[in-house]
Design a protein around this nucleic acid. Sequence first.
RNA 1: GCGAGAGUGGCGGAACUGGCAGACGCACUGGACUUAGGAUCCAGCGGGCAACCGUGGGGGUUCAACUCCCCCCUCUCGCACCA
Length: 824
Amino acid sequence: MSEKYAPKSVEEKWQERWEASKIYKVTEDSSRKKYYLLEMFPYPSGRIHMGHVRNYSIGDVIARFKRMKGFNVLHPMGWDAFGMPAENAAIQHKSHPARWTYENIDYMRKQLKKMGLSYDWDRELATCDVEYYKWEQLIFLQMYKKGLAYRKTSFVNWCPTCETVLANEQVEDGCCWRCDNEVQQKELEQWFFRITDYAEELLDYTGKLPGWPERVLTMQRNWIGRSTGCEIDFPLEGHLAKIKVFTTRQDTLFGATFMSLAPEHPMALELTTPENRERVQAFIDKVQKTDRVKRAAEDFEKEGVFTGSYCINPVTNRRMPIYLANFVLTDYGTGAVMAVPTHDQRDFEFAGKYGLPLQVVIQPEEKQLDPETMVAAFTDEGVMVNSGRFDGIRSGEAKERIADYLEAEGIGKKTVNYRLRDWGISRQRYWGNPIPIIYCDLCGVVPVPEKDLPVVLPMDVEFTGEGGSPLARIPEFATTTCPQCGEAARRETDTMDTFVESSWYFLRYCCPDFVAGPLDKARVGYWMSVDQYIGGIEHAVLHLLYARFFTKVLRDLGYVDVDEPFVNLLTQGMVIKDGAKMSKSKGNVVDPDALIGKYGADTARLFSLFAAPPEKDLDWSDQGVEGSFRFLNRVWKLVHDLLTFVRQAGLVAPISLSPASRDLRRVVHKTIKKVTEDIEERFHFNTAIAAVMELVNAIQAFEPKNDPLNAPVLREALESVVLLLAPFVPHVSSELWEILGHEGGVEKAGWPGFDPAAVVDEELLVVVQVNGKLRGKITVPASAAEATVREAAFVDSRVKPFVEGKEVKKVIVVPGKLVNIVVA
RNA sequence: GCGAGAGUGGCGGAACUGGCAGACGCACUGGACUUAGGAUCCAGCGGGCAACCGUGGGGGUUCAACUCCCCCCUCUCGCACCA
């Protein structure tokens, strides 16, 4: 290899070697400690971006470090390959989603290989591969059997022009993002996963994941949104039926003066009296035309309409008019709210607008509430009034007492309510996993028998962009026969949400070639859980919640033994340039191909690791990249320049070292210690790299370099630099390691350990303060007694003037650190 | 409004259990080498002439505070009419 650092040839050489020898391939080995390191797999959008470079560089450091430490490291990669962009690209380029996807995968795989990432490529999987998604269909059927997959009617965003359901993200200002027509709320029958069955456990375990960032846990807790309260039945006037409400404020029950229902409440029209019918219908239509985003806005005006019916407050017997109100959500609680205008701000505003009565039932201590003069609802704790037998007790306690009372009287019961909704997985899309269900006019919903799996996604489809589910337009797919009765039947033509695939891919990585079922329990048992998961914060709720849910479902189906998929989670920050997240629309993207072409993968990796700690946003700087490149050049040159001096060097014999080489050796071992700790305990790669830079500076400053007596120490120093850098910049490290005369690669060398004896200082720099201000620095032998240090402090020439002639009140000596002299 | 996190040189960032604030890198300045330097090497680099002052602001604890406590300000992210 030439003297000049030529990243391209070095990187190609090592990448070929790694590929040919498959050194990152792993198999289960119960005699070794496993480590499962996973980065979120990418969507094959075309090419990798800097976010990927950063994410995968971070992961690769940990994988390589753990491998050098002797762990059996599972480090897989694959493709989250189903999804809408492929379909849109197909429409645009008159191509096929499969072709587009697989071409992207081929290109991106090459890019990742160029990065020198240490994956076991034999475990690669693509979720659009029938060998993957067929198992997902089986899991779906097993969930269906257990009632965890079910069908129900719900409101969704519907674009009438494109004839398809849109996700909330695809609705912009109430209009379809593609055709710009107004989006409606439409009631549709869709498939759901019963994630709410696991709400309690999902919430409970957020307290048992100490390796997760607090903010992710908080976001999941908010999302699950557990609240405790009561369900209370309000009898209807003149009906036998009752209206059930959910409330967390049963202490305000005596103040409930009217009832608010969601406009979509199933009893809304039934309760409307003939003379109100027109107005009520108009109101419902109006609300349904309003999209969810607008309706949820805080400044959205509270409006309602009287149905003409009344219900009865079960504890006061007050006659309560029943309204429909636009702020009552149909899918939270029971879709009905007992309105207590005195103690709920929304109800207060609503009552004001429609002239509804106010009844105070909680009095604050410091003032007296009067319905006539109230300007806002009182929502804090206070003392109960106008509440019969509960008068005089604190409202907090009354919550309990009233709940007990309601249960005893059979009026209501204590319940727990969740904000979390069941996961709607139906998509009217082609490029996804077909839901394995058949609809028969005679037998109804019939699951595809397991023996008939997989339901293969047909390839001959036309992409017109017309909208509607493409699968529904393929008669050979959509029409079939009922597996039960043999009569003509229809296939489900919706596909699954792509988040389903990413909910279990990490399990399949453990046994990607398993043919007898979705998961090989023994192999999954060996590898799971994922020891370290790394990805962007944008999946804090979605993917990370779904994956947790799926793991628990698969546990209950008997496939896995773990409760949680990911022990430790690292959410890396964004890549920022010129003050904004890198994006095409901002025009501030840095192309990884160009970067690697110019500087090599090692520089790209080094910079993205050095510029910021992983969890923080990374500010891209072209000059910073230059700096990283410069550093690698320095290391390269240093090793080559010193090669002749160290080639013949033997092992270090610590006893016979000169003071200078003993000092260098101390720096070497301190650096090993620091780098190890920074990687292992904190993932602070930036400070680890900084420490190696300091070591390189120390080696450069070391003299004399050509003294044969110093050669062993110098050699140890160089080898340490190379090995410590190996997880960060594997190509150049491998090359230099070979140049230093080692066969078998850095992987075999193992992670260097430090000699505890070598890191002990012989002399210590002790800071001398007078009244807490820095006045001098003294160097003392490490073995010096406290009294000696104290004396040395007093006689220091820079300290003396501040102490002389003054009364010394106190002297604090922190061994090895400082002396603080307190004078009057 | 609720919750989480963050405010340190010109910039990215260090400072682990309170003990030299600014490691390391970038940028910048001066010098060396050079036909040349946008390469490389050497030196300098928070502010102030100085005493001193400096980690968003104000208090406090301590011999000693970026670090601990109280109050406030700003920013980022998430949730938010959730009954």
